[in-house]
Nucleic acid binder design. Sequence first.
DNA 1: CCAATGTCAGGTTGACTGATATGC
DNA 2: CGCATATCAGTCTACCTGACATTG
Lengths: 173, 173
Amino acid sequence: MSDDQVNAPGVAPRDPVEEAARRWGERYPGAAGFRALTSLVRAYSATVREVERALRPMGLNLSRFEVLLMLSFARAGALPVMRIRDLLMVHGSSVTYLVDRLADAGWVVREEQPGDRRVSLVRITDAGREVIGTAARRLADAGFGAFGDLDDDDLDALADLLGALRRPSGAGG
Amino acid sequence: MSDDQVNAPGVAPRDPVEEAARRWGERYPGAAGFRALTSLVRAYSATVREVERALRPMGLNLSRFEVLLMLSFARAGALPVMRIRDLLMVHGSSVTYLVDRLADAGWVVREEQPGDRRVSLVRITDAGREVIGTAARRLADAGFGAFGDLDDDDLDALADLLGALRRPSGAGG
DNA sequence: CCAATGTCAGGTTGACTGATATGC
DNA sequence: CGCATATCAGTCTACCTGACATTG
């Protein structure tokens, strides 16, 4: 196994991820885990790049899109900052930053929550609903990055497997 | 599919990703694609957080780990900047930045490539080989984030599906 | 007083764009 | 000359920590 670019007969590991996984297996344990990790990282970066290209003309990136979408899905049309933080699995101060940007664009407003004045409710505006509707359809048209290349069965299987990663069975978090 | 989204009083909320996917399906096309995209984003962020926690004690993060690992896998022990860029699917200037950090730590050195003085070869040092060996075993011990919760069949299936995402079949780029 | 919510300031990371040298 | 390689300057995102005011 000392070939750099020479492929053994019948096998063509031209993909850098497969090549790296093979070399990992020669030296370290957990080659399947390494291959999955590397695939995840590359797929993420390729996908986010595509998705943000589709969103950019509307003044959105993926994080802002997600905040706005969650607000548009909320029955009350508004969510507390802490709730957005939990839904998106980001830091509280990141939510403050994101909401600032969305408020600059006029897509959300902050308001008090009656009954608990510590809470700052983030409410989507009509302009926000308009841009999120356009953005959602554009994103679907763009096939969600490269997800358009997969059929629904593959997409479901992928989402199921990925779901196990964000719900760690152990004591992680 | 399931109509049991009703929240009985006191019942824990369901998975936010599944909830969002359901609402997407009520309004927009491509619910399976949206679900897969959202799962990817959440799984990535949870996984990278775990992985970087495991690497941090050695002064590495995921990007630096990957550069050093690719160098340790290269037969010549060195790669041109452009080759690293292609392997990691990042910008050339990002590679310059990463190599600066690795060189600061004494894990790589830059040298000229004989025959083409435009090219700057990045070579891993003995110290670099030492740290990458330690880091690789620690990462495997840590289960590659939450990948340790999946068996090899699931990991292979996941990597296969993710592999399709980084090899766009369409006219995308 | 203590706990929770949210904002803010300051520092760090790393990715991107665009403008350069430099060499083929 | 065009083209490729790599670096650099400047910008932007988003994270983190810790402090703080406000409220329950």
